[in-house]
């Protein structure tokens, strides 16, 4: 009874997590970040900060928090999902690939304990991320190939000019 009363009183007074979520819903990012500092559970703090920084458009900051979540909780697929999504949105191919693999492993391990709708949602997102990663890899390869081609053309032209100049200088003047 006492415990229930205490819990009720605590709930009425609001928790930092709830305060932070409320502030985030009103786009009051400063309040949300301050609230996250009052959270004793590390993962809750990282999650609130990740969501706040993402909403505020600080994708790199949100990625840092997502990777902290991924490192601290080896079971939750959401941190890995957000890490992958943010990294790929920022064009960070290797970080995105690592996070995507981790996300797929965690989803596989944890699907038995998740609602089917949640599993389906994650699988759909996973397919999108895979396609995004493939596109990023392909784009990177195309850029590297174009760069290599350009360098080869320039170097080959330079060599041809030098060789031509040497041969030209050595030919007799009379045509």
């Amino acid at each position: 009874m006492m415990a229930a009363t205490l819990i009720a009183l605590w709930a009425l007074g609001g928790s930092p997590l709830q305060d932070g979520r409320d502030a985030l819903s009103r786009s009051h990012f400063a309040e949300a970040l301050v609230a996250s500092e009052g959270l004793t559970h590390g993962l809750d703090a990282h999650r609130l900060r990740m969501d706040t920084l993402y909403a505020a458009g600080d994708l790199l900051g949100a990625l840092r928090e997502a990777q902290s979540i991924m490192a601290k909780d080896s079971r939750d697929p959401h941190g890995a999902y957000m890490s992958s999504r943010l990294a790929l949105d920022l064009g960070l191919e290797s970080r995105g690939r690592v996070a995507l693999l981790s996300f797929q492993e965690r989803l596989e391990r944890g699907r038995a304990g998740m609602a089917q709708a949640t599993v389906d949602w994650y699988e759909g997102k996973g397919a999108e991320l895979t396609a995004q990663l493939d596109s990023l890899v392909g784009q990177g390869q195309a850029e590297q190939a174009a760069l290599a081609r350009a360098r080869w053309v320039v170097c080959a032209a330079g060599v041809l000019v030098l060789v031509g100049a040497v041969l030209f200088a050595r030919r007799p003047l009379v045509p």
Binding site: S27, H28, F29, A30, E31, A56
Partner: peptide, 14 residues
Amino acid sequence: LQHRGLALDPSGWQ
């Protein structure tokens, strides 16, 4: 402006 999404809270902007 707030409603239209011009969020000017400083921490989002640093």
